[in-house]
Design a binder for these strands. Structure first.
Lengths: 363, 363
DNA sequence: TTGTAAGCGTTATCAC
DNA sequence: GTGATAACGCTTACAA
């Protein structure tokens, strides 16, 4: 079982290290047991810092383990224990600021609690979402954190998760019908605030570009908007409220249609910065001044929001914190078997208004 | 083993479905065997579409499996087979465009080849990188795809991967010293082209903000720059070549220092759009006209690059394709045990120049 | 304090 | 075709 490592000093000055041959077999606790003359079970306990073990033995076992390049085999342990110490997360896209930050928060919580994380993308497709759930079930994850895809209308696939003894926590985009912990933004309240901010800046004919309202995240944002409109006695034509837009292109189409009307909107509020960017580009191409003639407000505080011209007003959803909370719920409540009241099953992360140049006429 | 699913029709009109009780035990092939009166081993073969199995039986087994909500337990299978059909990827940050796209490409290849993917971030920290490798080794992944952190100088941790019978493929940021498949951009060539483009636009005192040159990705970009400078007989002072910058803040500091010199640069070329953005912000704050007085060229074609003012010239690294190739190498070469020549172990993805407003003086 | 042995759920090998 | 059985590497009653 010799190890072939050739150091070839090449002309270029770089060192190439060849380790072509790999160990044919993995080192197990039995190998350690044989080497040290103790039983495998004792090795196992030593490696797990079992309290009843002689500390001296623990040390020598760990030293030997390092020496023989022993690595714990989680598959065997998981099989035996029925738990994988792994949680899975499914999001529509990992490259949207909200989700990548949320994932960072989840990662942090997992790291602190010594769990692994498997990340999957649904790409806003219901089919991909089902496939991702399948993958995670196969991987025997202990818990699935999910923010559902825009296409998701049914919830049998989510309930299936529970049938496999896997915990489920929803965050951001929820199926309200499914009983699970939920971690959400104050969607209605913050959108109310956004709308109010626009109204206070003197905008009166505000258009709303929303997402698929069957998801409460988007439905509530629409509610918040309508609430503000009503409270301020504004009269908004029905075609100023658009649903089901998620891409910049869709927003561009909507903005083009509305801005050529005889009575066009004087402001746009949309549920993502990508949509608002689309509106901004249309305004620009039509020679409409932002914010003087048209106010624009986004959502999610995408990286580009503060650096485009004018800087895009947006909402800081505190997504990293939101993700972290979602994961912590698993560790704090579920894993410890705490009983919870229905109120505790819904946690709200309060978001923050970021009023910038694109919606600021008065100072 | 009754299933309690209460449908509560609430006032709000939403339906809450409670599935509080979870199945206490997982369904195994033995359960299927008992139900169908055939042996467990036969069930196993049926579920795996073994060629010697009666197709009629296969069908009835799969039907029964569905009916009983059976789910394959990968941990058991992996333990038995010594393979997990899972690959792991480690990147510095999932929310940088290059990496999130690369991951999407990797995901696609995994999906096509029926493998799972575990994603880890190193956050540019060597310690996190080691921890991530540990996690993946514990998870028994079959292969690790890695783009190393900026902090990574040594390679023992990478070689350790091989010692655990886990395949290693490096992409984008490589330790050249480590023998593995490598999938890279044409870093030197494209940076040469970028430099040439700046020179052709009449810029003569070009500053370079690079990354840590001990990583060939960044080292080669510097080389490409120097090569272009030399070939065109330009004289660049030593302090115009800065290394080891990775954040916008660092770039801002560099730009501030250089732009107040008596003979300041008339162009900046940097190895990421984030750095170039920093330069742009400084130029703006100093009232320097871009591109008239100062040309700026970025790298990676971040989402914001085309939408800021002026639009940022950048490099399309074709990152999704790069990621996909990296993963395909595992499926095409390694998994099939193909022998490879040293040349085949290094694949180059040719990137593309995107000349935009920030570096275009002549049309 | 330490060892024995059973079992987690699957699949491969060998029989029939 | 189909079935019995052992093995993957680990943990954990239980025994000593």
């Amino acid at each position: 079982m010799h190890h072939k490592c050739l150091f070839n000093f090449l002309g270029s000055g770089t060192i190439h290290v060849e380790c072509g041959e790999m160990n044919p077999k993995r080192v197990t606790i039995y190998d350690l047991a044989r080497e040290l003359g103790i039983s495998a079970s004792y090795i196992s306990r030593a490696l797990n810092d079992h309290p009843t073990i002689n500390p001296k033995v623990i040390e020598s076992v760990k030293k030997k383990a390092q020496e023989l390049n022993y690595k714990h085999n989680s598959h065997a342990a998981n099989l035996r224990q029925g738990s994988s110490k792994t949680i899975g997360v499914i999001v529509p896209h990992i490259n949207q600021y909200f989700f990548s930050e949320a994932i960072s928060g989840i990662e942090e919580a997992c790291f602190e609690n010594n769990h692994s994380l498997i990340i999957c993308q649904s790409h806003e497709s219901f089919q991909h979402e089902c496939k991702a759930i399948d993958t995670l079930v196969h991987q025997n994850v202990d818990c699935i954190l999910i923010s559902v895809s825009a296409e998701t209308h049914s919830f049998a696939h989510l309930q299936n998760i529970r049938k496999h003894n896997i915990e489920l926590i929803q965050f951001d985009r929820c199926m309200e019908e499914v009983d699970s912990f939920k971690v959400l933004n104050d969607n209605q309240e913050i959108t109310y605030e956004v709308s109010k901010s626009l109204i206070e800046q003197g905008y009166r004919k505000i258009a709303f570009i929303g997402g698929p309202s069957h998801l409460s995240t988007f439905g509530l944002r629409k509610e918040g908007f309508i609430q503000a409109i009503k409270e301020h006695g504004l009269n908004i034509p029905a075609n100023f409220i658009v649903e089901n837009a998620l891409s910049r292109e869709e927003a561009i189409e909507v903005a083009r249609e509305l801005l050529v009307l005889n009575e066009p909107p004087d402001a746009f509020l949309s549920i993502s910065d990508h949509l608002s960017l689309g509106v901004l580009l249309v305004a620009e191409s039509m020679g409409i001044q932002v914010p003087a003639q048209l106010g624009i407000f986004g959502f999610a505080n995408e990286v580009f929001a503060p650096i485009i011209k004018p800087a895009l007003s947006s909402v800081d959803q505190r997504s990293k914190e939101l993700g972290k909370r979602a994961a912590q719920i698993y560790f704090e409540f579920i894993l410890k078997g705490k009983t919870t009241t229905p109120e505790e099953k819904r946690e709200i992360i309060v978001s923050k208004l970021l009023v910038r140049g694109s919606s600021k006429r008065f100072f």
